[in-house]
Amino acid sequence: MKFGVVVFPGSNCDQDMHDALKHDLGQEVEMLWHKDQDLSSFTTDDCIVLPGGFSFGDYLRCGAMARFSPIMQSVIEFANKGGKVLGVCNGFQVLCEAQLLPGALLANDHQKFICKNVFLKPESRSSLITNKLDTTQAYKIPIAHGEGRFYTDDETMKNLVANDQILFTYCNEKGTADGDINPNGSIQNIAGITNKAKNVFGMMPHPERATNDVLGNIDGRKFFEGIINN
C-alpha cells in the first residue's frame, strides 16, 4: 500500500506527515497538490491523508474553502469507493466540511488556541486506525488547534454510538475521564470519529508528531500501524 498526502497552500503539517510515514514508519508516500485531481495511481488499499495546518488561512470557517479545491472531488470519490482517508486536525475539519464525516468542529470552549500533549483512550477496536490500540491504555498524543470542539446534534450522536463510530476520547494519563481532561469542550470528550463505512477517519490530535524516538514519544505509531497492516 502507499499513502498520498494532500498539500493545500496553507497546510503546515504535510511535511511532518510525510516524514512520519516515510522515515519513521517506512511507508511509500506521494505528495498531492490540491489543484491536481488525478488519484488514478491509488487503489482502495491505499490511504489519502489530509494533514493539519490552515489550508486557506482559515479566516473563514476552518476547512470551508479547502473542500472546494479540485482534489477534494477526487478524494470524495475515492472515499465513496472504499478508499481509506485520514484527516488530522485541519484535515478532520475539511472532512466534516466535505461531509465525509458527520458533525462540525467549533471554536474551543475557552476561545483560545491550545497546544499540548493530551491522552487518548480508544473507544473501540472495530476500525483500522484503532485495531492495533489497547482500549485499556492511554496514548499520549499532541494537540494544536483553536477550533477542535467536536459537536453534533443528538440524532447524529445516537447514530455515532449505535454504529461504533467514536474512535477515541480525551482522558487522563491513567485512561480515565476524571478531572479536567477535555481540552476544547468537545461533546462526550470526543477526539476522533469514523464514518459509517469505517474507511474515513478524522481526529484532532496529531499522531504524526509522536512517531520519532528523538522527540521522546512514539505513541502515534500504533495509530498508523492499524491502517498500514490491513
Binding site: Q15, D16, A20, C115, A144, R209, G216, N217
Partner: peptide, 17 residues
C-alpha cells in the same frame, strides 16, 4: 506557551524532554 503551536515541524525535541 500553550497558546503557541510548539510542535509543528516535528523538530522540537524539548516537548517531552
Amino acid at each position: 506557551y500553550n497558546q503557541y503551536d510548539s510542535m509543528v515541524g516535528t523538530a522540537n525535541a524539548s516537548t517531552n524532554a
